[in-house]
Amino acid sequence: MNDPRPHTLFSFGTLLDERVQKTLFGQSVPQTPAALAGHTARPLRITDPEVIATSGLDVHLTLARRIGAEVEGAVLHLTDADLAAADDYEVDDYVRRRTRLSSGATAWAYLDARPLRSASRIVIVGDSIAYGRCDPQGGWAARLATDHIATDETDSRVFNLAVPGSTLAEVAEQTPALLPARRPDTLVVAAGINDVAAAGNGQLRLEESLDTLAATALTYGARLVVVGPIWLDEDQAPAYEGLSFTLERALLLRETLRSWCTAHHIDHLDLWEPLRDRPDLLADGLHPTPEGHDTLHQHLMKIAL
């Protein structure tokens, strides 16, 4: 027999209000006290008139990361229809993501739609593009680190652990051992050219690696953010033995990442458009020039920070 309330949703704000619940769900819903470790709350101005009418408030709260902090709230036990109604209620500033509660259990929660804006400690894993090859300044990751740390020199950290030549399978295998000492709240996985090049028959089978990375992030209470791929210039791409860099495979990778992230409610930061049809921003058809990395960084600033 199926559980009639299969979804658990952590809330600390207006969804706990009985009046809001009756408006959204038609009744009060069962709830259990819970807490979310490693988080704090900050105000968010709401402009949607329907949301303001339902809650009676034009300022709601959103979650931000902070080591040692904890947000008290409750887990709501919801039906499929309840969860859909909650999704409709939340404004575009929020997205529903899986979180790990202080108890160790997991539940949905509504987080900042810009996945790096609420982060405190970020770990970046991936290949040579995330590493910053062809850019003495360290690529888009180093630029992101500069901006992120500038917001809070005391608590903000960015650890770039990308290794040139890595595939997602290798990243998925190596990442768990890298995380405990860094205590990340956000895990950025840059998926790029090596997964494209290694697909011998043109088919990408990345889901298992992505599933592993998602489970790893959740184990450490970190938010998974998948980044990439970038556009490549097939005509200028170098030829390596056993590897094939083609636009067709790059597009397949892009769609695979996008589809998987959508299906699993994982953040996907698409880096395709900023360099599309701009071979002048690629050093060798694959790796961005310093100007290319700066273009990627500016794009990330607009959609993630």
Rank of each mutant, 00 (worst) to 15 (best):
E170I: 09
E170M: 12
V171Y: 00
V171S: 03
A172R: 08
A172C: 02
E173Q: 13
T175V: 09
T175S: 02
T175C: 00
T175G: 01
P176Y: 10
P176A: 01
P176F: 11
P176Q: 01
P176H: 08
A177W: 07
A177P: 00
L178C: 02
L179R: 01
L179W: 00
A181F: 00
A181P: 01
R182N: 05
R182C: 09
R183N: 09
R183E: 13
R183P: 00
R183W: 08
P184R: 04
P184V: 10
D185Y: 09
T186S: 09
T186C: 08
T186G: 05
T186Q: 05
T186L: 08
L187P: 05
L187S: 03
V188S: 03
V188Q: 01
V189F: 01
V189S: 04
V189T: 08
V189E: 05
A190Q: 11
A190I: 00
D195P: 04
V196P: 00
V196W: 00
A197E: 04
A198G: 06
A198F: 10
A198Q: 12
A199L: 08
A199M: 08
G200V: 14
N201F: 10
N201C: 00
N201D: 15
N201A: 10
G202R: 07
G202L: 06
G202V: 08
Q203T: 14
Q203K: 07
L204W: 14
L206F: 13
E207M: 02
E208R: 15
S209R: 08
L210H: 05
D211Y: 07
T212D: 14
T212S: 15
T212N: 14
T212V: 12
L213S: 07
L213I: 11
L213E: 03
L213P: 10
A214P: 02
A214M: 11
T216N: 05
T216I: 14
A217V: 13
L218M: 10
L218Q: 13
T219H: 13
T219C: 03
T219D: 13
Y220A: 08
Y220F: 15
G221F: 11
A222Q: 08
R223K: 12
R223G: 07
L224T: 09
V225N: 06
V225D: 02
V225K: 09
V225Q: 07
V226Q: 02
V227T: 07
G228R: 07
P229L: 02
P229D: 03
W231Y: 14
L232D: 00
L232N: 01
L232P: 01
D233H: 12
D233K: 09
D233S: 11
D233L: 07
D233G: 06
E234W: 12
E234G: 04
D235F: 08
Q236I: 02
Q236N: 15
Q236W: 05
A237G: 04
A237F: 13
A237C: 07
A239V: 14
A239G: 02
Y240K: 12
Y240E: 13
Y240R: 10
E241A: 15
E241S: 15
E241G: 13
G242F: 15
G242V: 10
G242R: 11
L243C: 04
L243T: 01
L243M: 13
S244F: 03
T246L: 03
T246D: 02
